[in-house]
Design a protein around this nucleic acid. Structure first.
Length: 555
RNA sequence: GACCCUGUAGCUCAGCAGGAUAGAGCAGCCGCCUCCUAAGCGGCAGGUCGAAGGUUCGAAUCCUUUCAGGGUCGCCA
Protein backbone atom coordinates (compact mmCIF):
# COMPACT_ATOMS: atom_id res chain seq x y z
CA UNK A 1 0.00 0.00 0.00
CA UNK A 2 1.32 3.43 -0.88
CA UNK A 3 1.85 6.15 1.70
CA UNK A 4 -1.15 8.05 0.52
CA UNK A 5 -3.39 5.00 0.74
CA UNK A 6 -2.11 4.20 4.20
CA UNK A 7 -2.74 7.72 5.27
CA UNK A 8 -6.29 7.62 3.98
CA UNK A 9 -6.92 4.22 5.49
CA UNK A 10 -5.71 5.46 8.83
CA UNK A 11 -7.87 8.56 8.56
CA UNK A 12 -10.86 6.33 7.91
CA UNK A 13 -10.15 4.27 10.98
CA UNK A 14 -9.78 7.37 13.13
CA UNK A 15 -13.00 8.78 11.74
CA UNK A 16 -14.84 5.60 12.60
CA UNK A 17 -13.57 5.78 16.16
CA UNK A 18 -14.54 9.43 16.45
CA UNK A 19 -18.03 8.63 15.21
CA UNK A 20 -18.36 5.82 17.74
CA UNK A 21 -17.03 7.77 20.69
CA UNK A 22 -19.25 10.72 19.81
CA UNK A 23 -22.18 8.32 19.93
CA UNK A 24 -23.33 9.29 16.45
CA UNK A 25 -23.90 5.76 15.29
CA UNK A 26 -23.54 2.19 16.44
CA UNK A 27 -20.81 -0.04 15.10
CA UNK A 28 -23.29 -1.76 12.81
CA UNK A 29 -24.72 1.46 11.42
CA UNK A 30 -21.59 3.27 10.32
CA UNK A 31 -21.72 3.84 6.60
CA UNK A 32 -18.73 3.19 4.36
CA UNK A 33 -16.52 6.21 4.90
CA UNK A 34 -15.41 7.84 1.69
CA UNK A 35 -12.27 9.93 1.67
CA UNK A 36 -11.90 12.03 -1.42
CA UNK A 37 -9.26 14.39 -2.71
CA UNK A 38 -10.88 17.77 -3.26
CA UNK A 39 -10.24 19.55 -6.52
CA UNK A 40 -9.93 22.88 -4.77
CA UNK A 41 -6.84 23.07 -2.56
CA UNK A 42 -8.65 25.42 -0.18
CA UNK A 43 -10.67 22.35 0.74
CA UNK A 44 -7.65 20.62 2.20
CA UNK A 45 -5.71 17.50 1.34
CA UNK A 46 -8.63 15.18 1.93
CA UNK A 47 -12.33 15.55 2.59
CA UNK A 48 -15.16 13.35 3.72
CA UNK A 49 -18.92 13.52 3.41
CA UNK A 50 -19.40 11.25 6.43
CA UNK A 51 -21.38 13.85 8.35
CA UNK A 52 -23.93 14.05 5.54
CA UNK A 53 -24.20 10.30 5.34
CA UNK A 54 -24.81 10.14 9.07
CA UNK A 55 -27.56 12.74 9.07
CA UNK A 56 -30.33 10.21 8.85
CA UNK A 57 -28.84 7.75 11.32
CA UNK A 58 -27.92 10.31 13.99
CA UNK A 59 -31.00 12.42 13.27
CA UNK A 60 -28.99 15.63 13.45
CA UNK A 61 -27.99 18.33 11.03
CA UNK A 62 -24.86 17.40 9.05
CA UNK A 63 -22.88 20.41 10.24
CA UNK A 64 -23.64 19.59 13.88
CA UNK A 65 -22.48 16.03 13.27
CA UNK A 66 -19.32 17.34 11.70
CA UNK A 67 -18.70 19.41 14.85
CA UNK A 68 -19.09 16.29 16.99
CA UNK A 69 -16.66 14.37 14.84
CA UNK A 70 -14.19 17.25 14.95
CA UNK A 71 -14.29 17.23 18.76
CA UNK A 72 -13.72 13.51 19.02
CA UNK A 73 -11.10 12.87 16.40
CA UNK A 74 -7.54 12.29 17.53
CA UNK A 75 -5.51 14.76 15.49
CA UNK A 76 -2.20 13.18 16.37
CA UNK A 77 -3.21 9.64 15.49
CA UNK A 78 -4.95 10.72 12.30
CA UNK A 79 -1.94 12.87 11.25
CA UNK A 80 -4.25 15.85 10.85
CA UNK A 81 -2.81 19.33 11.11
CA UNK A 82 -6.16 21.07 11.12
CA UNK A 83 -9.65 20.60 9.80
CA UNK A 84 -12.51 22.75 8.55
CA UNK A 85 -16.19 22.15 8.36
CA UNK A 86 -17.48 23.51 5.11
CA UNK A 87 -20.42 23.68 2.76
CA UNK A 88 -23.36 21.45 3.62
CA UNK A 89 -21.25 19.40 6.06
CA UNK A 90 -17.99 18.39 4.47
CA UNK A 91 -15.04 17.92 6.75
CA UNK A 92 -11.85 19.12 5.11
CA UNK A 93 -8.59 17.74 6.43
CA UNK A 94 -5.27 19.51 6.21
CA UNK A 95 -2.70 16.84 6.91
CA UNK A 96 0.66 17.04 8.61
CA UNK A 97 3.23 17.30 5.86
CA UNK A 98 5.52 14.49 6.99
CA UNK A 99 3.90 11.97 4.72
CA UNK A 100 4.80 14.03 1.67
CA UNK A 101 8.46 13.87 2.57
CA UNK A 102 8.17 10.09 2.87
CA UNK A 103 6.68 9.96 -0.61
CA UNK A 104 9.85 11.44 -2.12
CA UNK A 105 12.07 9.04 -0.22
CA UNK A 106 9.97 6.10 -1.34
CA UNK A 107 10.23 7.08 -4.98
CA UNK A 108 13.99 7.50 -4.76
CA UNK A 109 14.29 4.09 -3.16
CA UNK A 110 11.84 2.17 -5.31
CA UNK A 111 12.80 3.88 -8.55
CA UNK A 112 11.29 2.00 -11.52
CA UNK A 113 9.15 0.01 -9.11
CA UNK A 114 7.44 3.07 -7.71
CA UNK A 115 3.77 2.72 -8.56
CA UNK A 116 3.69 -1.04 -8.28
CA UNK A 117 1.08 -2.41 -5.93
CA UNK A 118 -0.52 -5.68 -4.97
CA UNK A 119 -4.01 -4.54 -5.86
CA UNK A 120 -4.44 -7.43 -8.30
CA UNK A 121 -3.15 -9.95 -5.75
CA UNK A 122 -1.39 -11.94 -8.43
CA UNK A 123 -4.57 -12.79 -10.30
CA UNK A 124 -3.66 -14.46 -13.56
CA UNK A 125 -5.12 -12.42 -16.37
CA UNK A 126 -4.73 -12.84 -20.08
CA UNK A 127 -5.13 -9.89 -22.41
CA UNK A 128 -5.88 -10.89 -25.97
CA UNK A 129 -5.67 -8.05 -28.44
CA UNK A 130 -5.20 -7.00 -32.07
CA UNK A 131 -5.71 -10.60 -33.39
CA UNK A 132 -6.17 -9.24 -36.91
CA UNK A 133 -6.37 -11.83 -39.66
CA UNK A 134 -2.97 -12.67 -41.18
CA UNK A 135 -4.15 -11.66 -44.62
CA UNK A 136 -3.16 -8.03 -44.91
CA UNK A 137 -1.82 -4.95 -43.28
CA UNK A 138 -2.60 -3.45 -39.88
CA UNK A 139 -4.64 -0.27 -40.08
CA UNK A 140 -5.75 2.57 -37.88
CA UNK A 141 -8.20 0.61 -35.78
CA UNK A 142 -5.67 -2.14 -35.16
CA UNK A 143 -3.18 0.49 -34.05
CA UNK A 144 -5.60 1.79 -31.47
CA UNK A 145 -6.30 -1.75 -30.28
CA UNK A 146 -2.58 -2.43 -30.05
CA UNK A 147 -1.90 0.73 -28.07
CA UNK A 148 -4.79 0.16 -25.68
CA UNK A 149 -4.12 -3.56 -25.23
CA UNK A 150 -0.45 -3.07 -24.55
CA UNK A 151 -0.95 -0.10 -22.21
CA UNK A 152 -3.66 -1.96 -20.36
CA UNK A 153 -1.38 -4.97 -19.97
CA UNK A 154 1.39 -2.78 -18.58
CA UNK A 155 -1.02 -1.15 -16.18
CA UNK A 156 -2.41 -4.46 -14.93
CA UNK A 157 1.12 -5.72 -14.47
CA UNK A 158 2.02 -2.69 -12.34
CA UNK A 159 -1.18 -3.07 -10.37
CA UNK A 160 -0.17 -6.53 -9.24
CA UNK A 161 -1.74 -8.84 -11.79
CA UNK A 162 0.10 -11.64 -13.51
CA UNK A 163 -0.41 -10.66 -17.12
CA UNK A 164 0.05 -12.49 -20.38
CA UNK A 165 -0.42 -10.84 -23.77
CA UNK A 166 -1.75 -13.00 -26.51
CA UNK A 167 -2.44 -12.70 -30.23
CA UNK A 168 -4.94 -15.13 -31.72
CA UNK A 169 -3.91 -15.96 -35.27
CA UNK A 170 -6.93 -16.80 -37.39
CA UNK A 171 -5.04 -19.17 -39.62
CA UNK A 172 -7.74 -21.77 -40.20
CA UNK A 173 -10.78 -20.26 -41.87
CA UNK A 174 -11.86 -19.48 -45.39
CA UNK A 175 -9.79 -16.35 -45.42
CA UNK A 176 -6.63 -18.44 -45.45
CA UNK A 177 -7.82 -20.41 -48.47
CA UNK A 178 -8.42 -17.06 -50.01
CA UNK A 179 -4.92 -15.92 -49.10
CA UNK A 180 -3.51 -19.09 -50.64
CA UNK A 181 -5.42 -18.66 -53.87
CA UNK A 182 -4.54 -14.96 -54.05
CA UNK A 183 -0.87 -15.72 -53.65
CA UNK A 184 -1.05 -18.51 -56.19
CA UNK A 185 -2.68 -16.16 -58.71
CA UNK A 186 -0.09 -13.46 -58.08
CA UNK A 187 2.70 -15.98 -58.48
CA UNK A 188 1.40 -17.16 -61.82
CA UNK A 189 0.88 -13.56 -62.92
CA UNK A 190 4.52 -12.84 -62.07
CA UNK A 191 5.39 -15.65 -64.50
CA UNK A 192 3.18 -14.01 -67.13
CA UNK A 193 0.68 -16.79 -66.82
CA UNK A 194 -2.97 -16.12 -67.31
CA UNK A 195 -4.29 -16.36 -63.76
CA UNK A 196 -7.32 -14.66 -62.24
CA UNK A 197 -7.56 -13.56 -58.65
CA UNK A 198 -10.30 -15.24 -56.59
CA UNK A 199 -13.52 -13.29 -56.36
CA UNK A 200 -12.86 -11.92 -52.85
CA UNK A 201 -9.10 -12.11 -53.27
CA UNK A 202 -6.71 -9.98 -51.26
CA UNK A 203 -5.63 -7.18 -53.54
CA UNK A 204 -2.91 -5.86 -51.24
CA UNK A 205 0.55 -5.00 -52.56
CA UNK A 206 2.06 -7.22 -49.84
CA UNK A 207 0.83 -10.34 -51.64
CA UNK A 208 2.35 -9.23 -54.94
CA UNK A 209 5.58 -8.69 -53.02
CA UNK A 210 5.49 -12.23 -51.64
CA UNK A 211 4.86 -13.60 -55.13
CA UNK A 212 7.95 -11.77 -56.39
CA UNK A 213 9.96 -13.23 -53.48
CA UNK A 214 8.87 -16.72 -54.41
CA UNK A 215 9.75 -16.21 -58.05
CA UNK A 216 13.23 -14.95 -57.25
CA UNK A 217 13.86 -17.78 -54.77
CA UNK A 218 12.21 -20.69 -56.58
CA UNK A 219 11.71 -19.50 -60.15
CA UNK A 220 8.90 -21.28 -61.98
CA UNK A 221 9.27 -24.48 -59.98
CA UNK A 222 5.62 -24.33 -58.89
CA UNK A 223 4.17 -23.46 -62.27
CA UNK A 224 3.40 -27.00 -63.29
CA UNK A 225 3.60 -28.57 -59.84
CA UNK A 226 0.83 -30.69 -58.37
CA UNK A 227 -1.87 -28.24 -57.38
CA UNK A 228 -2.39 -29.64 -53.90
CA UNK A 229 1.29 -29.52 -53.03
CA UNK A 230 1.66 -26.13 -54.62
CA UNK A 231 -1.19 -24.71 -52.61
CA UNK A 232 0.13 -26.20 -49.39
CA UNK A 233 3.37 -24.37 -50.04
CA UNK A 234 1.70 -21.06 -50.86
CA UNK A 235 -0.50 -21.38 -47.81
CA UNK A 236 2.43 -21.90 -45.50
CA UNK A 237 4.55 -19.28 -47.18
CA UNK A 238 1.81 -16.67 -47.19
CA UNK A 239 0.93 -17.29 -43.56
CA UNK A 240 4.53 -17.14 -42.44
CA UNK A 241 5.21 -13.88 -44.24
CA UNK A 242 1.96 -12.26 -43.15
CA UNK A 243 2.56 -13.24 -39.55
CA UNK A 244 6.15 -12.01 -39.64
CA UNK A 245 4.92 -8.72 -40.99
CA UNK A 246 2.41 -8.41 -38.18
CA UNK A 247 5.11 -9.15 -35.65
CA UNK A 248 7.47 -6.60 -37.17
CA UNK A 249 4.87 -3.87 -37.37
CA UNK A 250 3.79 -4.46 -33.80
CA UNK A 251 7.32 -4.72 -32.42
CA UNK A 252 8.17 -1.42 -34.08
CA UNK A 253 5.11 0.00 -32.37
CA UNK A 254 6.61 -1.28 -29.08
CA UNK A 255 4.02 -3.99 -28.71
CA UNK A 256 5.31 -7.46 -27.93
CA UNK A 257 3.20 -10.51 -27.26
CA UNK A 258 4.03 -13.34 -24.88
CA UNK A 259 2.16 -15.80 -27.01
CA UNK A 260 0.98 -16.11 -30.60
CA UNK A 261 -1.82 -18.65 -30.50
CA UNK A 262 -2.65 -20.45 -33.71
CA UNK A 263 -6.27 -21.24 -34.44
CA UNK A 264 -5.26 -24.22 -36.54
CA UNK A 265 -3.45 -25.71 -33.55
CA UNK A 266 -6.92 -26.28 -32.09
CA UNK A 267 -7.64 -28.57 -35.02
CA UNK A 268 -4.23 -30.22 -34.98
CA UNK A 269 -4.42 -30.93 -31.26
CA UNK A 270 -8.02 -32.08 -31.50
CA UNK A 271 -9.34 -29.51 -29.05
CA UNK A 272 -12.60 -28.69 -30.79
CA UNK A 273 -14.59 -31.91 -30.80
CA UNK A 274 -14.22 -32.45 -27.03
CA UNK A 275 -15.70 -29.01 -26.37
CA UNK A 276 -18.60 -29.74 -28.72
CA UNK A 277 -19.13 -32.99 -26.86
CA UNK A 278 -19.10 -31.17 -23.57
CA UNK A 279 -21.72 -28.69 -24.74
CA UNK A 280 -23.81 -31.53 -26.06
CA UNK A 281 -23.52 -33.40 -22.79
CA UNK A 282 -24.68 -30.34 -20.91
CA UNK A 283 -27.66 -30.20 -23.28
CA UNK A 284 -26.64 -26.87 -24.70
CA UNK A 285 -26.91 -27.96 -28.32
CA UNK A 286 -29.60 -29.21 -30.66
CA UNK A 287 -29.98 -30.24 -34.30
CA UNK A 288 -32.12 -28.28 -36.72
CA UNK A 289 -32.17 -27.72 -40.50
CA UNK A 290 -29.20 -30.03 -40.85
CA UNK A 291 -27.08 -27.88 -38.58
CA UNK A 292 -25.94 -28.12 -34.96
CA UNK A 293 -26.98 -25.16 -32.83
CA UNK A 294 -25.76 -23.71 -29.56
CA UNK A 295 -28.59 -22.73 -27.25
CA UNK A 296 -26.99 -19.39 -26.40
CA UNK A 297 -30.37 -17.81 -25.63
CA UNK A 298 -30.28 -19.79 -22.37
CA UNK A 299 -27.52 -17.43 -21.30
CA UNK A 300 -28.88 -14.13 -22.50
CA UNK A 301 -28.02 -14.06 -26.19
CA UNK A 302 -30.87 -12.90 -28.40
CA UNK A 303 -30.76 -15.86 -30.75
CA UNK A 304 -29.23 -19.31 -30.87
CA UNK A 305 -26.05 -19.76 -32.89
CA UNK A 306 -24.92 -22.33 -35.40
CA UNK A 307 -21.87 -24.39 -34.42
CA UNK A 308 -21.77 -26.90 -37.29
CA UNK A 309 -23.13 -25.73 -40.63
CA UNK A 310 -25.23 -28.05 -42.76
CA UNK A 311 -22.17 -28.60 -44.96
CA UNK A 312 -20.47 -30.17 -41.94
CA UNK A 313 -17.92 -27.40 -41.31
CA UNK A 314 -17.64 -25.24 -38.21
CA UNK A 315 -18.65 -21.63 -37.95
CA UNK A 316 -16.09 -19.14 -36.61
CA UNK A 317 -17.68 -19.45 -33.19
CA UNK A 318 -16.92 -23.13 -32.71
CA UNK A 319 -13.12 -23.07 -32.56
CA UNK A 320 -13.39 -19.76 -30.72
CA UNK A 321 -15.32 -21.43 -27.91
CA UNK A 322 -12.69 -24.12 -27.76
CA UNK A 323 -10.04 -21.39 -27.73
CA UNK A 324 -11.60 -19.71 -24.71
CA UNK A 325 -11.91 -23.03 -22.92
CA UNK A 326 -8.23 -23.56 -23.64
CA UNK A 327 -7.39 -20.19 -22.11
CA UNK A 328 -9.08 -21.21 -18.87
CA UNK A 329 -7.34 -24.58 -19.01
CA UNK A 330 -4.08 -22.70 -19.08
CA UNK A 331 -4.89 -21.33 -15.65
CA UNK A 332 -6.09 -17.81 -16.26
CA UNK A 333 -8.53 -16.48 -13.70
CA UNK A 334 -9.67 -13.63 -15.88
CA UNK A 335 -9.74 -13.05 -19.60
CA UNK A 336 -9.76 -9.67 -21.25
CA UNK A 337 -10.50 -9.51 -24.97
CA UNK A 338 -9.84 -6.24 -26.71
CA UNK A 339 -12.14 -6.15 -29.71
CA UNK A 340 -13.07 -3.66 -32.39
CA UNK A 341 -16.52 -2.11 -32.12
CA UNK A 342 -17.66 -4.03 -35.19
CA UNK A 343 -17.53 -7.20 -33.06
CA UNK A 344 -19.68 -6.00 -30.20
CA UNK A 345 -22.61 -8.09 -31.37
CA UNK A 346 -20.44 -11.15 -30.85
CA UNK A 347 -20.04 -10.52 -27.11
CA UNK A 348 -23.28 -12.10 -25.83
CA UNK A 349 -22.60 -15.40 -27.59
CA UNK A 350 -19.06 -15.63 -26.22
CA UNK A 351 -20.29 -14.81 -22.74
CA UNK A 352 -22.98 -17.45 -23.21
CA UNK A 353 -20.38 -19.97 -24.30
CA UNK A 354 -18.12 -19.61 -21.28
CA UNK A 355 -21.11 -19.81 -18.96
CA UNK A 356 -22.32 -22.92 -20.73
CA UNK A 357 -18.91 -24.40 -20.00
CA UNK A 358 -19.28 -23.61 -16.32
CA UNK A 359 -17.33 -20.40 -15.99
CA UNK A 360 -18.58 -17.16 -14.52
CA UNK A 361 -19.69 -14.36 -16.79
CA UNK A 362 -17.39 -11.89 -15.09
CA UNK A 363 -14.32 -13.99 -15.82
CA UNK A 364 -14.45 -12.62 -19.34
CA UNK A 365 -14.35 -8.90 -20.04
CA UNK A 366 -14.59 -7.65 -23.57
CA UNK A 367 -13.10 -4.21 -23.93
CA UNK A 368 -14.49 -2.61 -27.06
CA UNK A 369 -12.32 -0.24 -29.05
CA UNK A 370 -14.35 2.33 -30.91
CA UNK A 371 -13.68 3.63 -34.37
CA UNK A 372 -10.93 6.06 -35.25
CA UNK A 373 -11.37 8.96 -37.62
CA UNK A 374 -8.32 10.78 -38.91
CA UNK A 375 -8.32 14.52 -39.28
CA UNK A 376 -5.75 16.77 -40.89
CA UNK A 377 -6.07 20.55 -40.96
CA UNK A 378 -9.64 20.15 -39.82
CA UNK A 379 -10.55 17.88 -42.74
CA UNK A 380 -11.45 14.25 -42.41
CA UNK A 381 -8.80 12.02 -43.98
CA UNK A 382 -10.42 9.09 -45.72
CA UNK A 383 -7.54 7.53 -47.58
CA UNK A 384 -3.80 7.47 -47.52
CA UNK A 385 -2.28 10.04 -49.86
CA UNK A 386 0.50 7.61 -50.70
CA UNK A 387 -1.46 4.50 -51.61
CA UNK A 388 -5.03 5.67 -52.03
CA UNK A 389 -6.07 2.94 -49.62
CA UNK A 390 -6.95 3.07 -45.96
CA UNK A 391 -4.20 4.53 -43.78
CA UNK A 392 -2.00 1.83 -42.29
CA UNK A 393 -0.51 1.60 -38.84
CA UNK A 394 2.96 1.84 -40.32
CA UNK A 395 2.18 5.02 -42.23
CA UNK A 396 0.83 6.51 -39.03
CA UNK A 397 3.93 5.53 -37.07
CA UNK A 398 6.22 6.95 -39.71
CA UNK A 399 4.26 10.12 -40.21
CA UNK A 400 3.58 11.16 -36.63
CA UNK A 401 6.13 9.14 -34.70
CA UNK A 402 5.63 6.33 -32.24
CA UNK A 403 5.54 8.43 -29.09
CA UNK A 404 2.78 10.70 -30.30
CA UNK A 405 0.80 7.84 -31.84
CA UNK A 406 0.94 5.74 -28.69
CA UNK A 407 0.11 8.71 -26.48
CA UNK A 408 -2.83 9.83 -28.60
CA UNK A 409 -4.37 6.38 -28.61
CA UNK A 410 -3.86 5.94 -24.88
CA UNK A 411 -5.22 9.41 -24.20
CA UNK A 412 -8.90 8.72 -24.81
CA UNK A 413 -11.31 6.27 -23.20
CA UNK A 414 -11.18 3.12 -25.40
CA UNK A 415 -14.93 2.85 -25.89
CA UNK A 416 -15.30 6.39 -27.21
CA UNK A 417 -15.13 7.36 -30.85
CA UNK A 418 -11.77 8.93 -31.49
CA UNK A 419 -10.94 11.88 -33.68
CA UNK A 420 -7.21 11.58 -34.28
CA UNK A 421 -5.82 15.00 -35.15
CA UNK A 422 -2.79 14.39 -37.35
CA UNK A 423 -1.86 18.05 -37.45
CA UNK A 424 -1.79 18.24 -33.67
CA UNK A 425 0.00 14.92 -33.22
CA UNK A 426 2.73 15.99 -35.63
CA UNK A 427 3.22 19.48 -34.26
CA UNK A 428 6.34 19.99 -32.22
CA UNK A 429 4.86 22.68 -30.10
CA UNK A 430 3.10 23.37 -26.85
CA UNK A 431 -0.19 22.43 -28.47
CA UNK A 432 0.90 18.84 -28.43
CA UNK A 433 0.33 17.12 -25.08
CA UNK A 434 3.02 14.51 -25.72
CA UNK A 435 5.69 17.15 -26.07
CA UNK A 436 4.38 19.00 -23.07
CA UNK A 437 4.86 15.93 -20.89
CA UNK A 438 8.17 14.92 -22.43
CA UNK A 439 9.42 18.47 -22.05
CA UNK A 440 8.82 18.28 -18.31
CA UNK A 441 11.08 15.22 -18.20
CA UNK A 442 13.77 16.82 -20.37
CA UNK A 443 13.66 19.96 -18.26
CA UNK A 444 14.37 17.98 -15.12
CA UNK A 445 17.18 16.12 -16.85
CA UNK A 446 18.72 19.43 -17.84
CA UNK A 447 18.71 20.62 -14.23
CA UNK A 448 20.12 17.31 -13.05
CA UNK A 449 22.97 17.56 -15.57
CA UNK A 450 23.87 21.00 -14.32
CA UNK A 451 23.68 19.84 -10.73
CA UNK A 452 25.98 16.98 -11.61
CA UNK A 453 28.52 19.40 -13.10
CA UNK A 454 28.43 21.34 -9.86
CA UNK A 455 29.23 18.17 -7.95
CA UNK A 456 25.78 17.45 -6.53
CA UNK A 457 24.51 13.91 -6.24
CA UNK A 458 20.96 12.79 -5.61
CA UNK A 459 20.60 12.03 -1.93
CA UNK A 460 17.60 9.94 -0.89
CA UNK A 461 18.27 10.99 2.70
CA UNK A 462 18.33 14.71 2.00
CA UNK A 463 16.45 16.71 4.59
CA UNK A 464 13.23 17.54 2.80
CA UNK A 465 11.60 19.31 5.70
CA UNK A 466 12.97 22.61 4.48
CA UNK A 467 10.71 22.40 1.43
CA UNK A 468 7.84 24.51 2.62
CA UNK A 469 6.50 26.37 -0.38
CA UNK A 470 3.07 25.68 -1.80
CA UNK A 471 4.63 24.51 -5.09
CA UNK A 472 6.94 22.07 -3.30
CA UNK A 473 4.02 20.54 -1.48
CA UNK A 474 1.80 20.44 -4.57
CA UNK A 475 4.49 18.58 -6.46
CA UNK A 476 5.08 16.02 -3.70
CA UNK A 477 1.39 15.47 -3.35
CA UNK A 478 0.95 14.88 -7.06
CA UNK A 479 3.81 12.36 -7.09
CA UNK A 480 2.17 10.54 -4.20
CA UNK A 481 -1.02 10.10 -6.20
CA UNK A 482 0.68 8.01 -8.87
CA UNK A 483 0.10 4.56 -7.34
CA UNK A 484 -3.59 5.31 -7.02
CA UNK A 485 -3.75 6.48 -10.61
CA UNK A 486 -2.37 3.12 -11.74
CA UNK A 487 -4.82 1.15 -9.63
CA UNK A 488 -7.65 3.28 -10.90
CA UNK A 489 -6.58 2.74 -14.51
CA UNK A 490 -6.34 -1.02 -13.89
CA UNK A 491 -9.70 -1.25 -12.18
CA UNK A 492 -11.50 0.55 -14.96
CA UNK A 493 -9.43 -0.71 -17.89
CA UNK A 494 -8.69 2.91 -18.64
CA UNK A 495 -5.22 3.77 -19.91
CA UNK A 496 -6.32 7.36 -20.37
CA UNK A 497 -6.28 7.72 -16.61
CA UNK A 498 -2.53 7.40 -16.82
CA UNK A 499 -2.12 10.00 -19.56
CA UNK A 500 -4.40 12.33 -17.63
CA UNK A 501 -2.29 11.79 -14.55
CA UNK A 502 1.03 12.28 -16.29
CA UNK A 503 -0.25 15.46 -17.91
CA UNK A 504 -1.26 16.79 -14.49
CA UNK A 505 2.11 15.91 -13.07
CA UNK A 506 3.90 17.67 -15.93
CA UNK A 507 1.72 20.70 -15.38
CA UNK A 508 2.52 20.77 -11.67
CA UNK A 509 6.23 20.48 -12.49
CA UNK A 510 6.16 23.34 -15.00
CA UNK A 511 4.30 25.50 -12.54
CA UNK A 512 6.82 24.66 -9.83
CA UNK A 513 9.68 25.40 -12.21
CA UNK A 514 8.43 28.88 -12.90
CA UNK A 515 7.92 29.71 -9.25
CA UNK A 516 10.88 28.12 -7.47
CA UNK A 517 14.54 27.62 -8.21
CA UNK A 518 16.24 24.28 -7.85
CA UNK A 519 19.90 25.25 -8.29
CA UNK A 520 20.40 27.90 -5.65
CA UNK A 521 23.16 29.26 -3.43
CA UNK A 522 21.64 27.43 -0.51
CA UNK A 523 23.19 23.97 -0.54
CA UNK A 524 20.67 22.17 1.66
CA UNK A 525 17.75 23.67 -0.24
CA UNK A 526 19.35 22.65 -3.52
CA UNK A 527 19.84 19.09 -2.31
CA UNK A 528 16.26 18.85 -1.14
CA UNK A 529 14.89 20.19 -4.41
CA UNK A 530 17.13 17.88 -6.43
CA UNK A 531 15.72 14.93 -4.53
CA UNK A 532 12.24 16.22 -5.25
CA UNK A 533 12.69 16.70 -8.99
CA UNK A 534 14.42 13.36 -9.34
CA UNK A 535 11.34 11.80 -7.75
CA UNK A 536 9.20 13.63 -10.26
CA UNK A 537 11.45 12.49 -13.10
CA UNK A 538 11.19 8.84 -12.04
CA UNK A 539 7.43 9.11 -11.79
CA UNK A 540 7.12 10.73 -15.22
CA UNK A 541 9.29 8.03 -16.71
CA UNK A 542 7.36 5.21 -15.03
CA UNK A 543 4.02 6.62 -16.13
CA UNK A 544 5.13 7.20 -19.71
CA UNK A 545 6.54 3.71 -19.88
CA UNK A 546 3.16 2.18 -19.10
CA UNK A 547 1.71 3.83 -22.19
CA UNK A 548 4.70 3.03 -24.38
CA UNK A 549 6.10 6.54 -24.67
CA UNK A 550 9.77 7.49 -24.32
CA UNK A 551 10.99 9.93 -21.69
CA UNK A 552 13.71 11.92 -23.50
CA UNK A 553 16.63 13.51 -21.65
CA UNK A 554 16.97 16.40 -24.06
CA UNK A 555 14.61 18.16 -26.41
C1' G B 1 -37.18 -3.24 -35.65
C1' A B 2 -33.32 -4.93 -31.84
C1' C B 3 -28.71 -4.12 -29.59
C1' C B 4 -23.84 -1.34 -28.51
C1' C B 5 -21.02 3.40 -28.20
C1' U B 6 -21.27 8.72 -28.00
C1' G B 7 -23.90 13.70 -27.09
C1' U B 8 -20.38 18.45 -21.30
C1' A B 9 -17.07 25.74 -23.36
C1' G B 10 -16.19 27.74 -30.58
C1' C B 11 -13.11 22.72 -31.27
C1' U B 12 -11.05 17.97 -28.97
C1' C B 13 -12.06 15.76 -24.49
C1' A B 14 -11.77 14.72 -18.69
C1' G B 15 -15.15 14.25 -14.76
C1' C B 16 -19.97 9.61 -14.28
C1' A B 17 -19.31 2.83 -7.57
C1' G B 18 -24.14 10.87 -6.47
C1' G B 19 -21.56 15.51 -3.11
C1' A B 20 -18.94 21.78 -2.22
C1' U B 21 -18.96 27.78 -7.30
C1' A B 22 -18.89 21.65 -13.66
C1' G B 23 -12.47 20.94 -15.24
C1' A B 24 -8.22 20.69 -18.99
C1' G B 25 -5.94 21.52 -23.71
C1' C B 26 -6.43 24.12 -28.24
C1' A B 27 -8.47 28.44 -30.46
C1' G B 28 -9.44 34.19 -28.49
C1' C B 29 -7.77 38.37 -25.29
C1' C B 30 -4.02 40.50 -21.49
C1' G B 31 0.62 39.93 -18.99
C1' C B 32 5.77 37.27 -17.79
C1' C B 33 12.68 35.58 -20.35
C1' U B 34 19.63 40.54 -17.09
C1' C B 35 16.94 34.21 -13.92
C1' C B 36 18.04 26.18 -13.89
C1' U B 37 15.32 24.75 -21.78
C1' A B 38 9.36 30.52 -23.15
C1' A B 39 8.23 23.08 -26.50
C1' G B 40 7.18 27.12 -20.26
C1' C B 41 4.26 30.20 -16.53
C1' G B 42 0.28 33.65 -14.63
C1' G B 43 -4.49 35.91 -15.68
C1' C B 44 -9.31 37.11 -18.41
C1' A B 45 -13.34 35.47 -21.15
C1' G B 46 -16.30 31.33 -22.52
C1' G B 47 -21.16 25.98 -20.63
C1' U B 48 -29.66 25.66 -19.94
C1' C B 49 -23.62 19.02 -18.86
C1' G B 50 -28.73 16.90 -26.09
C1' A B 51 -34.20 17.30 -24.14
C1' A B 52 -38.16 15.99 -20.64
C1' G B 53 -39.72 13.52 -16.37
C1' G B 54 -38.37 10.69 -11.80
C1' U B 55 -35.34 8.90 -7.25
C1' U B 56 -32.41 11.85 -3.39
C1' C B 57 -30.95 16.47 1.73
C1' G B 58 -28.00 16.72 -2.95
C1' A B 59 -27.89 14.41 -10.09
C1' A B 60 -23.29 15.85 -15.59
C1' U B 61 -23.17 11.17 -12.63
C1' C B 62 -28.64 6.61 -10.93
C1' C B 63 -33.84 5.19 -13.34
C1' U B 64 -37.63 5.97 -17.37
C1' U B 65 -38.94 8.26 -21.88
C1' U B 66 -37.25 10.95 -26.02
C1' C B 67 -34.05 13.38 -29.90
C1' A B 68 -29.29 13.40 -32.69
C1' G B 69 -24.59 11.13 -34.63
C1' G B 70 -21.71 6.57 -35.31
C1' G B 71 -21.64 1.19 -35.31
C1' U B 72 -23.57 -3.99 -35.43
C1' C B 73 -27.34 -7.35 -36.40
C1' G B 74 -24.63 -14.15 -41.66
C1' C B 75 -25.14 -21.71 -41.52
C1' C B 76 -18.72 -14.69 -43.11
C1' A B 77 -14.37 -14.38 -40.24
Amino acid sequence: MSQVEELKQNLKTQLQQAILSAGLAGEEEIPEIVIETPKDKDHGDFATNAAMQLARIAKKAPRAIAEDIAEHINYEEAAVEKLDIAGPGFINFFMKKDYLLDVVKTVLTQKENFGRSDYGKGTKVQVEFVSANPTGTLHLGHARGAAVGDSLSNILDKAGYQVEREYYINDAGNQIDNLTLSLEARYLQELDEDAVMPEDGYQGADIIGFAKEIVSAYGDRFKDADQEKRRAFFREYGLKRETDKLKDDLADFRVNFDNWFSESSLYEEDKIQPVLDELKQRRNTYEEDGATWFRSTEYGDDKDRVLIKNDGTYTYLTPDISYHKDKFNRGFDELINVWGADHHGYIPRMEAAIQALGYQKDQLTVQIIQMVNLFENGEKVKMSKRTGNAVTMRELMEEVGIDATRYFFAMRAPETHLDFDLTLAKSESNENPVFYVQYAHARICSMLRQADEKGYTIDADADLSILKSEKDHALMKKVGEYPEAIVDAARRHAPHRVTNYVYDLAQTLHSFYNAEKVLTEDESLTKARLALIEAVRITLQNALETVGVNAPERM
